[in-house]
């Protein structure tokens, strides 16, 4: 391995000053990522999304981000200036957010929003950007790309919207995609479809993927490796197919709490929390 890993994070801390002192959203998280699919699981407030924002340098004010090391393919992210960040976002790493209803700009046509990402990072003519955008729409399996190109976001269904979102975030061919609950807002029937498209694109383009979700089942079937976060800490890291051998009591409790078709459970178990886990 001569090539540095795609992402290296050591001792990442994110905290928000508030009335009652600092709220520590992420505490001492360390992990690394190659061109693989890494799942981050945890309940709301566990710091999984904040970790994603920190990687993109978009932790909202007045959040404070510190880390011993945070790099993308060897580029030190901690020392980046704002304009470096801008040329990096979208081009080298990108993010698909939860609900296309809110994450697509409602008054701009779909085509324009997809082209925008391309043109922010490539010097190109309008025609060329348009060609790329149409190709990208086809890559996310939208059939009438020409027509969809001219629609406004509210004219799309949820699944279509999320595919447009993926197209918009991948058109500049980033090396890393962070998907933050990309299917939680969708109907169950469309979820799989969107996941498959995401899966294909990541595989074909050889990207790294960080898949953030609260859904252990999806993550374990979709990812190579899983991080489990609890209270801002990474409490467990293991291969997805070895989850059943997880050591941390929280992970084990999570697995127990998930309903399963394989065995009959008269009552789902509830996670009993131990204050020790936060220590």
């Amino acid at each position: 391995m001569s090539e540095p890993p795609l992402i290296e994070v050591e001792d990442l801390n994110v905290s928000f000053p508030g009335r009652g002192g600092l709220t520590r959203a992420v505490r001492g998280a360390s992990f690394s990522l190659g061109r693989e699919r890494l799942g981050i699981v945890g309940e709301s407030g566990s710091g999984k999304s904040t970790t994603g924002w920190a990687l993109l340098g978009l932790v909202p004010r007045p959040g404070i981000v510190t880390a011993r090391r945070m790099s993308l393919s060897g580029t030190d992210l901690l020392s980046l200036g704002e304009s470096d960040w801008q040329s990096l976002r979208g081009r080298r790493m990108s993010m698909v957010m939860q609900d296309p209803k809110y994450s697509l700009n409602p008054v701009l046509r779909v085509g324009r929003q997809i082209q925008e990402t391309y043109r922010l990072h490539h010097r190109s003519s309008a025609a060329e950007a348009r060609r790329h955008a149409l190709a990208m729409l086809e890559a996310v399996r939208i059939r009438d790309a020409d027509q969809v190109f001219h629609l406004y976001p509210h004219q799309l269904s949820g699944g279509m919207g999320q595919r447009v979102m993926i197209a918009m975030m991948l058109i500049a061919e980033p090396d890393l995609l962070i998907a933050d609950e990309p299917t939680s807002a969708l109907d169950v029937t469309v979820q799989n479809q969107v996941l498959r498209i995401l899966d294909d694109l990541v595989t074909v383009r050889g990207m790294g993927l960080i898949f953030i979700s609260h859904n252990l089942t999806i993550v374990s079937s979709f990812c190579d490796r899983v991080l489990v976060m609890y209270g801002g800490r990474i409490v467990e890291e293991c291969k997805a197919d070895e989850l059943d051998r997880a050591k941390h009591p929280y992970t084990r409790a999570l697995i127990r709490a998930a309903p399963s078709l394989a065995s009959y459970q008269p009552e789902l178990s509830v996670v009993v929390r131990d204050p020790e886990w936060l220590a």
Binding site: R89, G90, Y102, L108, E116, A172
Partner: peptide, 23 residues
Amino acid sequence: EYVVAARVKGRSFWGAVWHHAFP
């Protein structure tokens, strides 16, 4: 959220303000 999405795409803060929020 679409403002954040614009930042993710590589827009500057003021770019997101004028090109996305303003319309």
